[in-house]
Design a protein around this nucleic acid. Structure first.
Lengths: 203, 203
DNA sequence: GAGGCTATTATGTATAGACATAATGAGTCA
DNA sequence: TGACTCATTATGTCTATACATAATAGCCTC
């Protein structure tokens, strides 16, 4: 008979939390007590609890104990997509087309967004990702050359900045924002859409 | 002198990976070897490696070993928004207006999306969130009454389904998807936009 | 050489025991 | 009262050991 694994314990605790065995904000039993109940070592219970804490379901503090989070799961995760992988995973043929690549001074709106000085050098790349020959995503990217100097010597003829950056500039802190807008003429042409059609953007 | 903790080990391994001490795709030393190098127990190295694997920087497979991920799928987190908190945090006055609330049979497109049987009962709620009296977000929500029966007895006169669900139906597995679309006449009217304007949606 | 069995190996997980650390609260002293 | 010290306590982490499990490689058989 299989012993209680940390997964089993985690699952059972999740169940109890969702069934309100312990109310949100309420302190739940300590590691020792749970270990005794499940017939497992404290380290095993600890692992289960750590995972629950990481996912935001519970909050833990030394000495005061573990309590069910008042505002459960306020965070979710999403994978930063690599377009090529996305397209290939769907079984379509991936094609990449470089439209534009030039070193340019950062325009005002960009300097403000990134907190750059006037005259900051950037690499401006526009390219298109196609799935089965049909436009799939239009990439219009500005790379701060001060932050990623190595990008200046990339030609981006065969790999997109998106993919190159993910592979070559591992970042740990990043900020993404999304929004919807009507396609401007340039975007519409690249994606073969009617101008004014709605597009999802990542700024 | 502080011993090497799993954090130190994780950090050092991250550094090596970003400095290409091991190339992407290359097999890196096993747990035993790393434990010997860092003067730590294998369990400690294991914990560091598990976290790196979870964040997508490395890939691990029994027997074949640990290798640096070829396409580091980095994950990001986002907060599941509670509209009221969002608006209040920005210093605006929050206002909530219920537009529609009715128990309805799930339409076909919804049944397909959620994998429901024909005739499944759902609660359909439409409401509007306003900031300083101006439309901010339009919420058009279908709740599966089989999954959250308690929602059926909520009137949603003062709290939105969004908020109620986050507080009362803690979920650990969830799927969100986002998209852009042109506002349909109903959405446009609620948000006081021109029909056809681009809106960001959460499906 | 195809198919299947087996040994090997690296990771995965569990354990008991130990010490570390943070937070709390009680007791002490000015 | 207020500040400080210190014991207490729950979680945090590390270790050594053991066994489990998946995947590979090599061997054997037909």
């Amino acid at each position: 008979m299989r012993r209680n694994s940390f997964r089993d314990i985690r699952t059972e605790l999740e169940r109890r939390i969702s069934r309100r065995v312990w109310e949100p904000g309420e302190t739940m039993p300590g590691e020792e007590a749970l270990a005794a109940e499940f017939g497992a070592a404290r380290a095993t219970v600890n692992r289960a609890l750590q995972e629950l804490a990481r996912s935001g379901l519970i909050e833990r503090k030394r000495k005061s104990g573990t309590r069910v989070a008042l505002h459960p799961v306020r965070e979710a995760r999403f994978a930063i997509p690599v377009v090529r992988a996305e397209i290939e995973a769907s079984g379509s043929a991936y094609e990449y087309r470089l439209l534009h690549r030039d070193k340019e001074n950062a325009p005002g709106w960009l300097r403000e967004r990134l907190g750059l000085d006037a005259g900051a050098r950037t690499l401006h790349v526009r390219c298109l990702h196609l799935a089965d020959g049909r436009p799939y995503q239009y990439e219009d990217r500005w790379i701060n050359l001060a932050a990623v100097p190595a990008a200046g010597s990339e030609d981006f003829e065969t790999a997109s900045p998106n993919e190159w950056l993910v592979a070559n500039a591992p970042f740990s802190r990043a900020q993404y924002s999304f929004g919807a807008a009507r396609a401007d003429p340039e975007e519409a042409q690249a994606l073969r859409l009617d101008a004014g059609e709605a597009v999802l953007g990542n700024h």
